[in-house]
Design a protein around this nucleic acid. Structure first.
Lengths: 259, 259
DNA sequence: CAGTGGTCTAGACCACAGA
DNA sequence: CTGTGGTCTAGACCACTGG
C-alpha cells in the first residue's frame, strides 16, 4: 500500500463551509481544495459576489500551508471563477460563459468545465437522400445518402445550443447506432475520426421560429451560428450548424501568439 | 525608493542560456523567468523538442528557489508551450498552430486583397477619463486617461465595419497624432507594439440606432461584434469593438488542427 | 540507483486597502 | 494600524523514469 501525501490527516469544516474528505487516494491536496471551492461555487453555496475566507483562514481551517491554499485560488482566478483584490479579499465572479473557439472541446465538456450540468435532447436522427445544395456542401453527389441529426444541448436545463448536423455515411457508417443523449455527436465523431482539417465560419443570425422555440427565445434575439466542417482523407466527414443564443453564450479565445 | 523583491541580486547565465536582467523594478521573479523562457522559445534558441534544464539546475543557475522555478514551468505547460514528464524532464512542444479564426490582417488589407477600395471615416478621436467599467476592461484605475476613437470602414463606399476602440496612452502615447483615414488604428497599433497576448470574443447583437445609421442597415439586422483586446508586457494595449453587418461579412477560418 | 518533476510546509517580507 | 493577497525561500517527501 503506497503511502500518499493525500492520505494525510485533515481537520475539516472548522469554520468554513468547505468539505474536504479524508479518504482520497492520490489526489493532490491543492486539487481537492480547488474542487471543493469549485463545488461551492457550482452549487450556489457561494453565489457570485461572495467573499471567500482569507488564505490564512482557509489554511488554518483545512490544516494546510498557505502556499497550498494559494494555488487553487490563483488557478481559479486565472480561469475566471474568482477575483482577487490585494488588501481586500477573494470574491466569486459572475459566471462568464463563452466557448473557446480555438479548442474543439465538445460542448458537453465545455459546459462541465464551467461546473454545470449538460443534457441533450435528440429531435431528429435519420438517414436522408442529399439534395443539391447540401450535397455540394458535403462534397458528395446529389442523391447520395447522408445521416442527419438535430440535437438541443442544455446547460442546467437552459437550452444553450441548437445543433444541426450532417454526417457522411461512408466515413462513419456506425453513426446511427449511438445514444446521443450520452455522447454528443461532435464528441463521438472526434473519437472516431481524427479530423485532418477544419473549417469554421461564424455568422450573426436571427433564429427561425422553430429554432427560437427550442432555444426558448424570441425571434428577434440575435444568435451566433457557427458553421463547422471537418475533413479526413480528403473527404468531408461532417458539416454542422451550431446555433447559440448570444444572450447566453459567446464564442471566444485567448492565447499567447509566441511570435 | 521602495525596496522590491525584484531588486534582488541574481547571478545569471551560469550554465543556462537564460538571461535575467538585474534591474527590473517591480516584476515578480517568476514572471521574469517565465518571460525569459518564452523568449528562448520564441527566438528559436530552444527549438521544439529541446530539453530544458531541470528545476534544480535552473534554481541554482538563477539563484532562485525551486518553487519559484516551478511556477513558470507549470504555467507554460498549462499554456501548451512546454511538456513535462515526471522522471524525465521538461521539453519545448511543437508550435501550436493556432486557429487564426480571426486573422490579424487589418481590415484595410483585407478589403484591398479582395480588390476593393478601402475608405475610413473618423467619427470620434479624443482623450477621455475612464469610467469604472471601462477602466476594469482596460486593466487600469478609474479616472486614468484613455484615448478613444470611433471609425467607420467602407468597402467601395459600402459601410462594412463600425470600430470603437480605446487605447492605453501609457503604452502608445503618440496615438492621437496619426491620420486614421490613411492608416487604420489596428494597423498602426500592430506596427507600434507587437502584442504578446490576444483575446477575442464574438457575439451576435442587434445594432443601436446610431450604429445602424452609420452602417446603413436597419435595427433588426443582426451584426457580429468582435471584441478584441491585446496585451504587451502584462498591460492591456487596446480594447476594440468591431461590429460587422452579418449580411455583408462573415468571420471564418480553415486550418489543420493538431493530432 | 540517481535524477526528474509533483507536491507540501512553515515560515518570511512586501504592497495594498480600509478603518 | 490590521488584515488582505503576492511572492519567495529552503528545505522535505513522494512517484516516476531510466540506466
Amino acid at each position: 500500500m503506497p503511502k500518499s501525501y493525500a492520505q494525510r490527516k485533515m481537520s475539516m469544516n472548522k469554520n468554513t463551509s468547505l468539505s474536504i474528505t479524508n479518504s482520497e487516494i492520490a489526489r493532490p491536496l491543492y486539487q481537492q481544495i480547488k474542487d471543493a471551492i469549485s463545488e461551492n461555487i457550482r452549487n450556489g453555496v457561494w453565489p457570485p459576489g461572495t467573499k471567500l475566507p482569507s488564505e490564512n483562514q482557509l489554511a488554518s481551517d483545512l490544516g494546510a500551508s498557505r502556499m497550498t491554499i494559494n494555488r487553487p485560488l490563483r488557478e481559479l482566478t486565472a480561469e475566471g471563477h474568482l477575483k482577487r483584490i490585494q488588501g481586500v479579499g477573494t470574491f466569486v465572479t459572475e459566471p462568464a460563459r463563452h466557448a473557446n473557439l480555438i479548442e474543439l472541446k465538445p460542448i458537453a465538456e465545455e459546459i462541465q468545465s464551467q461546473g454545470k450540468q449538460h443534457r441533450a435532447k435528440v429531435l431528429t436522427l435519420k438517414s436522408i437522400k442529399s439534395k443539391r445544395v447540401l450535397a455540394e456542401r458535403m462534397g458528395i453527389n446529389t442523391g447520395d445518402p447522408l445521416f442527419h441529426i438535430i440535437v438541443v444541448h442544455y446547460q442546467d436545463d437552459i437550452p444553450i445550443q441548437y445543433e444541426t448536423r450532417h454526417v457522411n455515411p461512408s466515413v462513419v457508417p456506425n453513426f446511427m447506432q449511438i445514444d446521443f443523449t450520452k455522447t454528443t455527436p461532435g464528441e463521438f465523431l472526434v473519437s472516431q475520426v481524427r479530423p485532418e482539417e477544419l473549417e469554421h465560419i461564424v455568422q450573426a443570425i436571427l433564429p427561425t421560429t422553430k429554432i427560437a422555440k427550442h432555444l426558448s427565445i424570441n425571434t428577434v434575439e440575435p444568435c451566433l451560428r457557427l458553421k463547422r466542417r471537418t475533413w479526413k482523407d480528403g473527404q468531408i466527414v461532417t458539416a454542422a450548424d451550431l446555433i447559440y443564443p448570444s444572450s447566453r453564450y459567446d464564442l471566444g479565445a485567448r492565447y499567447q501568439p509566441l511570435t
